[in-house]
Simulated scan of single mutants.
Amino acid sequence: MLERTRRKSTTEITFVLPADQPAGEVSVVGDFNDWQPGAHQLTARRDGMRSVSVTMLADSRVAFRYLAHGDHWFDDQDADDHDGTNGYLHT
């Protein structure tokens, strides 16, 4: 799930996943963090989910994926677009 908060020149994207699916650590990686694993790791929320928020420039297109423990890459079905390799957001 993706939550978005639009501001004047930025958009805050909150990446949200269930706390236990997949098990173990998960980070979101993409153009916005030079594909660096662990740079934006999802953390537990009180509602049984886990999330991380990233502020990005408004009106841009950003590629991203999730990386879970054991080098397991996966996509977010709520992405604006998919190209078979990455998901994309339009901020």
Rank of each mutant, 00 (worst) to 15 (best):
M56C: 08
S9H: 10
S27G: 06
H82Y: 12
T43G: 11
W73T: 08
V16N: 10
T43E: 12
G48Y: 05
D80W: 05
E12H: 08
L42F: 08
R45L: 13
D47H: 10
M1R: 01
P22Q: 05
A39M: 08
P18H: 10
D20H: 13
D20F: 14
Q21M: 07
V26K: 10
D83T: 07
H40T: 08
D20N: 14
F64T: 00
K8L: 07
M49E: 04
R50G: 04
V52A: 07
E3K: 14
S60G: 14
P37Q: 05
N86D: 03
V29P: 02
G70L: 03
T91H: 06
H72C: 06
F32Y: 11
V16Y: 01
S60K: 13
D75V: 07
H40P: 02
T14C: 07
D31E: 02
L17P: 03
R7L: 14
T91D: 02
Q77W: 13
V28T: 04
G30F: 01
V29D: 08
E3Y: 10
R6E: 12
M56R: 04
A68R: 04
V16H: 00
F15Y: 13
M56E: 05
V52S: 12
T10W: 00
M49R: 12
S9N: 14
R50H: 05
D31T: 11
P22W: 02
V16I: 14
H90D: 15
A23G: 09
R4S: 01
G38Q: 06
V52E: 00
L2E: 12
D81Y: 11
A63L: 01
A39Y: 02
A68S: 14
A23T: 14
T5F: 12
G87L: 03
D80Q: 08
D47S: 13
W35C: 05
G48F: 01
V54K: 03
T10F: 09
H72S: 06
V62M: 09
F64R: 05
H40C: 13
P22N: 11
D47M: 03
L2I: 15
W73R: 06
M1V: 02
H40R: 11
V28E: 00
M49Q: 15
N86L: 12
